[in-house]
Write a protein that binds this DNA or RNA. Structure first.
Lengths: 205, 205
DNA sequence: TGTACATCAGTGAACGCGCGTTCACTGATGTAC
DNA sequence: TGTACATCAGTGAACGCGCGTTCACTGATGTAC
């Protein structure tokens, strides 16, 4: 917003970008304000012209992540296919694609330990991305007979939990050496079985 | 093993215990060797009589966690009920109970970033707990017609992912303010729907 | 167009801090005789 | 039982390090006239 032309150009965003790369490389707690500053070609003290401190910088990364996350999932849902089911599955794939494509953002959002209320902007961005997931679940759950329909928020929580679990356990190199299956395949199969359990997919297919 | 009677009694285990409490309180990367030593009433340098360094101390906590984890899950599986299904569900409940009861161990195991090969003892304990989960999945999957049976390792990966996701997202205070449902309920319902999707529970029940 | 001035992004030095790790040591415990 | 000795768990001081944060400053940019 009009910072361009000054000494650096757009230091604020350069710092966020540097922070996200470092978080991706060293984990959210291995990340260092000083190193982000150095990466952006600037003195640590310069960071304080744009952020209140280390935590605010991470929070801004998380906020931007939630914004992208919500956009990506919303797009997948809206354009995901003719049926509510297809749209929902596209949303699930978008989840994993986001985690893969923006690992720094993902870590800042879910692994940094930054409280969701750290910043008003972060809080509202997080609420937005959460709402998208629930919207997708709610649309799909319309196809379940009301008397056996679980609350949409539970439904979306299950999908979210399985997706997050797959990301944390199998989409990184961490435990067990490596994944027994490609994460995409694992998640798609898991969601498929889950949806079949809800009666949303034909038992025989 | 026979250190009792010396200056401290059993400093080695006291250090592990202190580390696990601190990891629970401050996260696996906020944890500090010096503070663990202070908690145990000892100089930081004393730690090096028992561990190679900071990472080895965390690895030992993770190792003990995997040992307990495997025991707990194995017991739940073996004594979980008359049917393979009941035994499996007991195992799932044991997962969450472990995460609740031993949060420090859980974090050291799954959130500390310690590689599974950090220590031979850790590697073999982790392999053991992983094997128990697969054993339970394998036993249950015998009840699925072979032609539509997913590999037991995929089956157990799904359950593990959903369980871990529930723990990370909803069984701590982190995102979204708090859980929309009690985690136990959420996980049990999720596993139930998943098992129904596999045809292991009657669709109408 | 040119000059004087105000703004404010980034500097560079300094701070106090706690970290993980090393080292020569000390002194309580255990052991040989 | 008593004495001399060996062991080795824990000490305390020191190290070099990088951290987050503060502060008075400087000098390029933008603006008023």
């Amino acid at each position: 917003m009009g910072k361009r032309g000054y000494h650096h150009g757009n230091l604020r965003q350069a710092l966020v970008d540097a922070a996200l790369v470092l978080i991706e490389q060293k984990g959210p707690t291995g990340f260092t304000l000083s190193e982000a500053a150095k990466t952006a070609g600037v003195t640590p003290a310069a960071v304080y012209r744009h952020f209140e401190g280390r935590e605010a910088l991470i929070a801004e990364g998380a906020r931007q992540g939630h914004e992208i996350f919500a956009d990506v999932m919303d797009y997948a849902f809206e354009s995901g296919g003719p049926s509510a089911l297809a749209a929902f599955e596209a949303t699930g794939r978008a989840y994993l694609a986001f985690a893969r494509k923006y690992p720094g953002h993902y870590m800042a959002m879910f692994e940094s330990g930054i409280p969701m209320n750290a910043t008003p902007g972060l809080a509202s961005a997080a609420a937005r991305s959460r709402a998208i997931l629930e919207k997708a679940a709610d649309a799909l759950s319309q196809h379940i007979p009301p008397e056996k329909r679980p609350p949409a928020s539970m439904f979306s929580a299950h999908i979210w939990a399985m997706s997050h679990g797959v990301v944390e356990l199998f989409a990184r190199g961490k435990p067990g050496g490596n994944a027994p299956f490609p994460p995409e395949e694992l998640l798609e199969a898991g969601i498929g079985i889950y949806l079949r359990g809800l009666g949303l997919i034909e038992p025989d297919q």
